[in-house]
């Protein structure tokens, strides 16, 4: 019973704040809603028993990406943004595309209906560490190269032009 209550509360937080991200006119409000939505997704990870992902989601998404987006929202923008409309003219085709997508997602969800968890969740940090430094060592190192490249790219694009 407690599990159901927690799940539906987290779902309400995630979906309503996601709607806020997409529909609110002010980008600042959207960015704050994004932080709330990412925190709710972290709660869903905790409900799924994924302990390390829960911590990583809080650290990387809520603490890193949401704050970074907030900084950019504060840097890029003018006063006129508060009064101009933020939705383009293609909202009706977009709504149709989203209806098609949600119809197919509904099909897939029905295909997987009735599957319940048979075992209790258990901590996976030790096993994940073994996988990251064992079988998945090469992708792990490649991801660090990607991070280095993105850091270099961010510095390159963000620096002031040499006069």
């Amino acid at each position: 019973m407690t599990e159901q209550i927690i799940f539906y509360m987290l779902t309400a937080v995630v979906l309503f704040s996601a709607l806020g991200v997409v529909l609110l006119p002010g980008v600042m409000h959207s960015a704050l809603c994004l932080g709330l939505c990412l925190a709710g997704v972290a709660g869903l990870f905790a409900a799924l028993g994924a302990d390390f992902i829960f911590a990583a989601q809080i650290l990387v998404y809520v603490g890193g990406i949401a704050v970074l987006i907030l900084f950019v929202v504060l840097l890029a923008g003018t006063k006129a943004d508060l009064t101009t409309r933020q939705i383009n003219d293609a909202w009706l085709p977009a709504l149709l595309i989203c209806a098609a997508f949600s119809w197919s997602f509904d099909k897939i969800t029905r295909y997987f209906s009735g599957i319940i968890a048979t075992t209790a969740p258990h901590p996976t940090i030790r096993a994940m560490a073994g996988a990251l430094l064992g079988d998945y060592a090469v992708p792990f190192e490649l991801v660090s190269v990607v991070l280095l490249a993105s850091m270099t790219g961010a510095v390159l694009f963000g620096r002031r032009k040499a006069e």
């Binding site: 979906l15 996601a18 991200v21 933020q86 909202w91 977009a94 997508f101 949600s102 997602f105 969800t109």
Partner: peptide, 14 residues
């Protein structure tokens, strides 16, 4: 699925 659809709508309309 609902979260993905909301995000897709945002990508198409913002």
């Amino acid at each position: 699925g609902i979260l993905f659809t909301i995000g897709l709508f945002g990508v198409l309309t913002r």
